[in-house]
Design a protein around this nucleic acid. Structure first.
Length: 294
DNA sequence: AATAAATTCAACCGCGCTGTG
DNA sequence: CCACAGCGCGGTTGAATTTAT
């Protein structure tokens, strides 16, 4: 919890061009409440969003009768109040999925969260920082690179994730997969042949496992990262290549990483409308907002 | 029982991106 | 092309809680 403080936000910010722009009252926050939300505030926000829907966060607090900034409202809704937010312990299968997704995506918490129904980016980020990074370190694995901390030791050396980002310093999925397009709607792999099944399963229908497999398996992390990921890597490549072939006319090297190979068949995902993913436009792969009663 | 240290996680902050006029 | 508004993301903070001494 942050200490509720008087107005501290900057009234100005630098733009990408280096100029300054005057910030809106939303960010000035003069007289706005901070810190933990009360039940009354939660109710006000929930009721309003159920009535009017999400969005227009900047003006939402005023319309909803809240003395909060729009950012704060959005955060509270996204991380806590949304009906589809799953609370409670992260299950072992979810944990395994987070590990695998992190290995592929790095600290792209929103992307990772988008593939784990009911979990928020904040929750996953916290879980990673408080549990998983320590767990990996205790196993001799660098949580940033997913490679052994001591390269000269351990069988881990032979088990560097084959599908890990070849450049771990660059968590840029777009670069990582820049040679291919993956476009779900036109992918030749049938929706029914590729299912992402919670808990943590990405399976190909021919019986060949594809990386995000049986999360109930009790093998150590290093065991998980070998065979399964080779298959997974191959699968990804085939998907990408196939799709690249089909979409040669496309102009931008955009990919839909998570929606393409993690998002199939989840009840979480609505039909994938535009699966085009830009590294700078994660909206393309975000799961749909929770359905609210009209 | 009291206190200190460690851990957890909700919330905040700053930055960068996109859309619009 | 530029300025601005709005939004979303990742990193960080620090109060609350738990565990250790």
């Amino acid at each position: 919890m942050r200490k509720p403080a008087s107005s501290s936000a900057k009234a100005m910010k630098k733009t990408t061009a280096g100029t300054t722009t005057t910030k809106t009252p939303c960010c000035v926050k003069i007289g706005l409440k901070r810190g933990p939300w009360t039940a009354e505030e939660d109710e006000l926000l929930s009721n309003y969003i159920h009535r009017e829907g999400e969005g227009r966060w900047r003006t939402l607090p005023k319309r909803a009768g809240l003395l909060r900034c729009g950012k704060s409202c959005r955060l509270r809704w996204m991380n806590y109040l949304r009906p589809c937010v799953k609370r409670g312990q992260i299950a072992p299968d979810e944990e395994d999925l987070i590990l695998r997704l992190h290995r592929l995506l790095g600290n792209r918490w929103s992307l990772i969260a988008g593939r784990i129904p009911g979990r928020t980016d904040n929750e996953i980020k916290n879980y990673w920082n408080t549990h998983l990074s320590k767990k990996l370190i205790s196993q001799g694995i660098d949580p940033r690179t997913h490679k052994p901390l001591n390269p000269s030791s351990s069988k881990l050396n032979n088990c560097i994730p084959s599908c890990s980002n070849p450049n771990p310093e660059n968590n840029n999925v777009g670069d990582y997969f820049q040679n291919g397009y993956v476009h779900v709607q036109s992918a030749s792999i049938d929706h029914h042949h590729l299912q992402y099944q919670l808990p943590g399963t990405l399976a190909v229908n021919n019986g060949c496992s594809a990386g995000l497999l049986n999360n109930n398996q009790e093998e150590d992390y290093d065991m998980n990262c070998c065979n399964g990921d080779d298959v997974f890597s191959s699968f990804l490549n085939s998907l990408i290549n196939e799709e690249a072939h089909q979409n040669e006319q496309m102009a931008d090297p955009l990919v839909s990483i998570s929606s393409s190979f993690f998002g199939f068949g989840t009840s979480w995902e609505s039909p994938l409308v535009s699966s085009t993913f830009s590294q700078n436009d994660p909206k393309g792969v975000e799961p749909p907002a929770c359905t609210l009663p009209q």
